[in-house]
Simulated scan of single mutants.
Amino acid sequence: MRYKNDQKSVSRQRILDAASRRFKADGVAASGLAAVMEDAGLTNGAFYTHFGSKDDLVREALSVALQEQLSSTPDPCGADALLEILRTYLSAGHTKNPSLGCPSAALLPEIARSPLGTRREYEEAVGRWVDKLSSGVGGDVVARRRAMALFCLAVGALQVSRAVASDEFSDFARTSAVDTAQALLKG
């Protein structure tokens, strides 16, 4: 049975959404195509109608997830607004729900081992993040460097807060990062 183009587009988006959630929850290496397709409510055979390989799926799912995250984040207007964005990012809820959260914090080590095309797309996405964050605090070279430092601080703090065993140490990692971000924004 042949599908209409709009049905194919809907199915492709379901696969991308399912892959994004699965990859962020379990990691790319631990996520088989069969599980992704099951999550999408489609058969395994339908995968290659939409993607040439798992690497293609990873690149596209990562790109879509990063763009959705960027689009859903408000534009910061000043240091206070940027600090509020960071507090939201470093919340306990975000820490406990990686499948619904930041693809950078969930997948960074796997992105580093991805093909060059995926890493280039990731670099462009991070550049868009840095531009967005820096635009709210001046947009100049100094603001861009601070925004890059804040991005790295936030992603690393979220990774640490997810990796530790106790809620207390997780909270300590996140609040320490927010305090450091606040000091950086004042300087």
Rank of each mutant, 00 (worst) to 15 (best):
R128I: 03
C102E: 14
H50N: 00
A19G: 02
R2K: 15
G78L: 00
L107R: 07
P103T: 08
V64N: 13
G101A: 12
R162V: 07
V130C: 05
R119N: 04
A157L: 01
P74T: 03
A65F: 01
A157E: 02
V141L: 13
A105Q: 03
G187S: 11
A165K: 14
L86Q: 14
L42P: 00
S53Q: 05
R113L: 10
V130K: 06
K54P: 06
A173V: 08
M37W: 00
F51G: 07
I85L: 09
S91Q: 04
A181E: 02
A34L: 05
L16F: 01
V160R: 15
A79H: 12
A106V: 08
A147I: 01
V58F: 08
A25L: 12
R119L: 09
E121G: 12
L150Y: 08
L86A: 10
S161V: 08
P76Q: 03
G93W: 12
P76W: 01
N5L: 14
D17W: 00
A18W: 07
R119Y: 02
P103A: 15
E60I: 15
S11K: 06
A183G: 13
I15K: 02
K54R: 11
E110D: 05
E110A: 07
T88A: 14
P103N: 09
L100C: 11
S91F: 03
S134D: 04
R128Q: 10
A112E: 13
N97K: 11
D56P: 10
R21V: 11
Q67M: 13
T88S: 09
A112V: 12
Q13I: 04
G127Y: 03
S72Q: 06
A19Q: 06
D179M: 07
T49P: 08
C152P: 12
R162Y: 05
H94E: 13
L82G: 02
D56M: 09
S134V: 06
N5M: 11
